[in-house]
Write a protein that binds this DNA or RNA. Structure first.
Lengths: 246, 246
DNA sequence: AAGTGGTCTAGACCACTTT
DNA sequence: AAGTGGTCTAGACCACTTA
């Protein structure tokens, strides 16, 4: 089957070649230009068409396989996955997520102080109990409606934001601005009934179901940079994950 | 810093070299032989020590970066991530998960019949409304206690299990046994209050918080192979995800 | 300046699937 | 037998970080 795409690469660009190709393929799939089930040319042929080596073309394809947009089968070929493409869970903050989807995020700061780490927090961050940590509690709103209660603890020497800084952007933006790069985060997602305080903040009743997420994030130095314990109004928020068999 | 590890590769083994190395590194991290914060030798040195090319060594390291066990930083090096390692969300069935963690899984079959696809299901599977699908409803128990209500719909020609087969293993095992390889699954995780029926099955009350998961799985042919709508007792189950910035 | 990971090449051989 | 993706090599040059 012939390729109906016009892929191009710009070798003067600082953007990696594999990334340029992956982006164009992703866009072609997202726009429907490549329909579900469409069979791509083989890797060597595609590489030749673009003037790339096979490993580079292969890496471009692998990016989309990892995202769940393409499937590969040895001896057979590479095909576009059937089914709709949804927005993925990424290593971005809720604040950025909301802004990206056109909802108007807002933040109300409830707690912003340095205090000794509670046992659970010290455990998650790899600290000793009682070491000083920055404790944040925020109510996150989207389009003026309460969405989530966000509790976070950070090592005291990462950031010291003002309430105003917390109201104007996401936590991860502040961490990035401080020159710290978050590379890995482990999340545990669950559910429970809302506490009285949570229900009041979120505008529901005690024991209403809330979606919960506990997260520990690590900087590229390998050290723990943040522990978060969040709860969300489940009518307004859910997590999406794509799993790929490798 | 010198490497304190004894990594070896067996070139006669059919197991890929990068995978052999990744496995040994993962085990060394998991066993504590490589402590959090430990700095690995650079890629070229490690490759030389093992008699591998740099791309192969690099791929071994990348596997563990993707799993969130290592972090890399250009100009600096590769380090073991601080913090505990948890079991990951993988493309396995709940049944296998439970067995792997030593809990005794059991299944009670509630529905096992072929019927016309409801609108939502047809939409998720990419079928026309009314096309025939296999509809399953199961109550999953762990150590004799109810854990989850599992509702699944599959194209009618994938499997036709007996109730007994469903009671003795996981759905994914049956799909694999039928020669179908599941490569990609998209999951949406949320929460809500239990319905009356769910509360009765799970041994709770109506409106108790339940953790929910909707999943669409795709075979390596790219076609949708399963849609599932599950709910879990949140005291007994949660999802874990590792996010990696690439 | 030295060392690190990030990208890229141009091949090679193999395992698996389909014809 | 032909075609596909999976693995692997032995280099190369570059960008970034640290000293």
């Amino acid at each position: 089957m012939a390729e109906s795409l016009r892929l191009t690469v710009d070798r003067r660009s600082p953007v990696p070649l594999y990334y340029q190709v992956a982006e164009q393929l992703e866009q072609a799939i997202g726009s429907g230009q490549l329909s579900p089930g469409f069979k791509l040319d083989n890797e060597i042929s595609l590489a030749d068409q673009l003037g790339l080596s096979r490993p580079t073309m292969r890496r471009a394809i692998q990016e989309l396989v990892d995202k769940g947009l393409l499937v590969r089968k040895r001896g057979v070929g590479t095909q576009v996955v059937h089914g709709r493409v949804r927005r993925e869970l990424e290593l971005t903050s809720l604040f950025d997520d909301l802004r990206a989807t056109g909802q108007k995020p807002a933040t109300k700061v409830l707690v912003n102080q340095v205090e000794p780490a509670p046992a659970e927090v010290a455990d998650e961050l790899g600290f000793a109990e009682g070491d000083e940590v920055l404790h944040l509690e925020r109510l996150r709103l989207a389009d003026e409606k309460p969405l989530a209660v966000l509790r976070n603890w950070l090592p005291a020497n990462v950031i010291r934001p003002t309430d105003e800084e917390l109201e104007n952007g996401g936590l991860y933006q502040l961490i990035r601005d401080a020159g710290t790069h978050v590379q890995v985060a482990r999340q545990r997602i669950g559910a429970r009934g809302a506490t009285t305080q949570e229900a009041r903040l979120l505008g529901g009743r005690k024991n209403d179901a809330v979606l919960t997420m506990q997260r520990t994030a690590y900087a590229d130095s390998g050290r723990a940079i943040e522990y978060g314990d969040h709860c969300y109004r489940p009518e307004a928020y859910s997590f999406e994950v794509t799993l790929v068999e490798r």
